[in-house]
Nucleic acid binder design. Structure first.
Lengths: 253, 253
DNA sequence: CGCTAGGTTGAATACGCTCAAAGATCGTGG
DNA sequence: CCACGATCTTTGAGCGTATTCAACCTAGCG
């Protein structure tokens, strides 16, 4: 267990990449003043909103999505504890997507100024912020590949494996299992499939013993096997340290 | 025409969002030392590469992509003049995707240290860098929606409209037309379709008078009409100034 | 002139969608 | 505590969009 097991998920996530000083942890925790708790279904951001602030998910799930005509909807990605919502929101003047809470959601809003200040006064945290942004971009990229070039079967398995891994990074999942607060409707919108087909695909995954689903929980009995089936490689989610060169740059400052 | 018509496409792009001082322009141009020219097909980044530097596309097209088994391939996005390749590359230690040149490519590599320094000494540029990252993220999000929830017809039209708009922002396209250096194979990999179907879809777009294609050029005779057909809204690509609040924050520094 | 990469077209197939109806599950109020 | 309604899940049948396979065409280039 990490020495930050009790602290915020963002700190847990970042301390896997770099050892944080007590001061750095304090600065990060500082971003968590102004927390709120929102009920399931709340809209945090609506497409067309102006000048949103950045937020950090502390507990619960949310999702970013866009709505199209005739009821079509696409989930862009899921926001889990430790995720930063709109890391550069303060610079964008109109939101081009919506964000809604899936579960009851604990979330902290922070001022755009905080980030500017953080970058200016604590480059290490600036770099880690950049790392978080880069990782989210990697997750989005994988979402493009998943939806663009994988079969329904692979897609579904792949997403579940990603979610497991991401939750594990913030101590929000077990070794094989996690709580999945998604309806098949929402899953379908994330996977670019119809609800019916998601249902059939999940059934097939269960029938093949790759998945155990019960009352909002998923268990993956044989992760190795599911990874193979989904062609899942977790590299894009894993990083255990900053590159040496970057470390060196930082030490000079 | 902008007063920076002659300068680098990155400056052109950013000066649409904020008026840049001469000093700021100089700092941005500074990132363009160490330019190279690469032939079409060159790999700039290969999946698995360690610790890449960030780059700026000066001229030409490139694409980010991932390769799957049995020859499947997905283009994550296209990189056009003024685009930053891996804005936080210095913090990520292993590339999870590849990048290759489509045309002959003029590209500038800059040191990770430059960015840290820029953030520290020139917050306005730091903010604009953040804006560029945020915009790229919006483009990626739209790619997810396109591939996940749009028909082949909409998808194709939508991508072409996006490319037109993005190119216009860096003075690399006319009012209705631009040079499109993509094979139908590559287009298919970007749209998550088969080559054959891309071909049929393009034909339909031509038959309906929505597109004119000839020898590597596209013309969109009636943009309004194609936007309607594709359900394209360009908001995510457009921003003409920084939000007032952010301006105010900046002035305080 | 012939090679090669890319574009075009047809026919058969398949994967995933739509429509429809029936079963679970859960929260809520009687 | 049970009944009801609402939401979510499951299953079947038929359909349609996009795929695969295969052949042929075209343009550019050595």
């Amino acid at each position: 267990m990490s020495r930050f097991a009790a602290s915020s998920p963002l700190v847990r996530k970042l301390s896997a990449v770099a050892d944080l000083s007590n001061d750095e942890v304090a600065r990060l925790e500082d971003l968590h003043r102004h927390p709120r708790t929102l009920p399931p279904g709340s809209e945090l951001v609506a497409e067309g909103d102006r000048h949103e602030a950045s937020m950090i998910v502390v507990e619960g799930w949310a999702y970013r999505y866009k709505v199209l005509s005739n009821g079509r909807q696409q989930v862009i990605n899921f926001l889990l504890p430790g995720d930063i919502v709109g890391p550069f929101a303060s610079v964008i003047d109109v939101a081009d997507h919506s964000v809604a809470a899936i579960t009851s959601l604990r979330i902290a809003t922070f001022e755009p100024a905080s980030i500017l200040e953080l970058f200016a006064t604590c480059p290490r945290i600036g770099v880690l912020y950049g790392w978080a942004v880069g990782r989210d971009e990697a997750i989005l990229s994988e979402q493009v590949v998943r939806v663009g070039r994988r079969s329904a079967f692979e897609r579904t398995a792949h997403l579940l494996l990603e979610l497991l891994r991401r939750l594990q990074h913030v101590n929000a999942a077990g070794v094989q299992s996690f709580e999945l607060p998604l309806t098949q409707d929402l899953l379908a919108d994330a996977l670019g499939l119809s609800t019916v087909h998601v249902n059939r695909t999940l059934r097939r995954l269960r029938d093949e013993g790759l998945l155990v689903l019960s009352r909002g929980w998923v268990r993956i009995p044989d992760i190795e096997r599911l990874q193979q089936a989904a062609e899942f490689t977790p590299d894009y989610l894993e990083q255990d340290s900053l590159p040496e060169e970057t470390q060196a740059e930082l030490d000079k400052l």
